[in-house]
Design a protein around this nucleic acid. Sequence first.
DNA 1: TTTATAGCTTGCGAAATGCAAGTGAGTTTT
DNA 2: AAAACTCACTTGCATTTCGCAAGCTATAAA
Lengths: 167, 167
Amino acid sequence: MAGIPKTKHRSGCPVSTALDLLGDRWSLLLVRDMMVRGYRTFREFQRSGEGIATNILSDRLQKLEAGGILVRGPAAGDGRSTHYRLTAKGIALAPVLLEILIWGAHHEETDAPCAAVEQMEQNRAEVLAETVRRWEQRDPTPFIPPFSKLKSKSDSKSNSPKGKSKR
Amino acid sequence: MAGIPKTKHRSGCPVSTALDLLGDRWSLLLVRDMMVRGYRTFREFQRSGEGIATNILSDRLQKLEAGGILVRGPAAGDGRSTHYRLTAKGIALAPVLLEILIWGAHHEETDAPCAAVEQMEQNRAEVLAETVRRWEQRDPTPFIPPFSKLKSKSDSKSNSPKGKSKR
DNA sequence: TTTATAGCTTGCGAAATGCAAGTGAGTTTT
DNA sequence: AAAACTCACTTGCATTTCGCAAGCTATAAA
């Protein structure tokens, strides 16, 4: 991402300020990977399938750490490995990422299973709560929404063949 | 923003796909300016106070148009001028921008009036509905949330000196 | 007619990105 | 114990993007 202008060219509004830190191709993806896929290591990010270069990965992790989005610490039992973990500030980006996911699924060609996205859209609060719970418990597994739970709640919806409908 | 990888380095997930189009310093800011400030002209963006260079501005507007986020058309009465307008796909980014705004206001140093942000946070649905209404009616004026309406609804809240509190 | 404006475009240097090899420390295998 | 492997980067370099500011053309105003 290019120059955060060093001088006076800044409006100071929240969106602008947030994009100073997050407005690039990779940063939000990394946060997403930690939040949703449970990634903790450099290696996982590197092999995420998004094609990020190691120097960019290293740079972004450093910037996110400097910005208070994540912290790094040693991984237990392996002296080579580092674990990255989202901070409260980082996990607070969950609503942002959820909205991007929903928007992207609706308006772009993606691989996302439509029913899953629809579920998440209809159950935003639950998805966000689950995201936070998993973060608090340091759950490293990929986030498969507890649809077994959500299904029992909204079974009539999950059966409706909605497909990808524009809002 | 750098290389949307032209080859296989793409996961196809909604967030990744969305960031292919929007993952740079400027694109979401432009959408924000159209959505919230009512901007329609090149000149307005240029003078927004964010310090965008004209070649970047031109490039981003073209990319957003190509991506279906906005359309351009002649401005009535001035043969030099072009008007840019968000599409339905573009206005559908409102929840994304609202969440970024709320996150930014909470977690970064910004100029945003705290009470205003708090109001928006507590009334997400109304803010989003108003955003869409203004878009539908092509309202070019800056979005000042109808706090006169929201105040009457939540007067006790607006009087409480909350300040900026972390979530 | 001259001056000003709108919307870009352009030339060029600076900065960022991407590729892929390289490095040093730690771990596992032979 | 030595060799091979792995982890987390780092590095050198080419390519791309960004930023600055001047420039260009068509339209509008003075």
